[in-house]
Design a binder for these strands. Structure first.
Lengths: 152, 152
DNA sequence: ACGTTATAGTTTCATATGTAACCATTTGCA
DNA sequence: TGCAAATGGTTACATATGAAACTATAACGT
């Protein structure tokens, strides 16, 4: 059995990062873990990616958005939105029309089937969020919200 | 000028998610923003990806690790680590030997050049972390640490 | 010792993603 | 008007990523 790893050069003129205490790294792990758990819920049931779900979530709230507006709301770039939309339209989750006064713009909305899926997935997503928050007491939840408000 | 988007079906039997108040979404945006800012720092200067940098950060702390151990420490899967290592070895940032008693294992360490790069990048990463934390007061910083400890 | 199973790491293939180039339409303004 | 610049959106290409198959070596049980 090989010796346990020990921290490198004792002559520590190097000051290496400790990832496990490094905020950006910790945030990244946490965020990926949570998002992946939610994605697992719907990717198994429906054939849809996280980006596609985000687009649907926005269209559920705002009727008749253009692709660019969706991109703004989701913080995705327009190429990603375009691709998500073409899959969603093909799968008949989203309806895409052309804007009356500007033929460049699309006018997007959920289809019947899109709404049906939304109405199943949204509660699952909320349940996962609750699972996470349940690990914190009321005071911690309060601070978390406040901290995210400040940082974003 | 087209009418401002209004929230969809007034007959809200649908209860759509509000992404901007949805914890997983907010965490994801925050995490990506911060990680990307750091990555921009070193990707422009050195030809290295985020995963490669994480591998280097671990090797800076732990001398002689195997690829599997690196994978554990970085929360990356072994394929990602393998790929990162082959690029790092090719770029002469990392030295890869074979374990004496187990020819399957690699024995990894930073090269001279790897250390040189590490010693430039680590302070930049720490500076970015400080920039983020500077947006919070001492109490908020304290709570953030505590919350991450609990959730991770 | 010998075959089975487990482990370390790499390769392959299919899919996802980002950047830049591109088309169509609209806007701004000489 | 009419033409350059801006905008909405898609396509093409190059690179990244994940899952599964694969190779080599080691560990285990008999």
């Amino acid at each position: 059995m090989p010796a346990k790893r020990r921290p490198a050069p004792p002559t520590a003129e190097h000051a290496p990062l400790q990832l496990e205490h490094f905020l950006p790294y910790r945030l990244s792990i946490l965020s990926n873990t949570i998002s992946q758990a939610i994605a697992d819920d719907y990717q198994s049931r429906y054939d849809i990616s996280m980006t596609e779900w985000r687009v649907m979530a926005v269209l559920a709230r705002f009727e008749g958005m253009s692709a660019r507006e969706v991109a703004e709301r989701t913080a995705m770039d327009k190429v990603a939105v375009s691709r998500a939309l073409s899959r969603l339209v093909a799968a008949d989750r989203v309806d895409r029309a052309t804007h009356d006064n500007d033929k460049r713009r699309s006018v997007l909305s959920l289809t019947e089937s899109g709404w049906a899926m939304h109405d199943e997935v949204a509660p699952m997503a909320r349940a996962r969020e609750r699972d996470v928050l349940a690990k914190l007491d009321a005071e911690e939840q309060h601070w978390l919200t406040r901290i995210l408000d400040k940082l974003l």
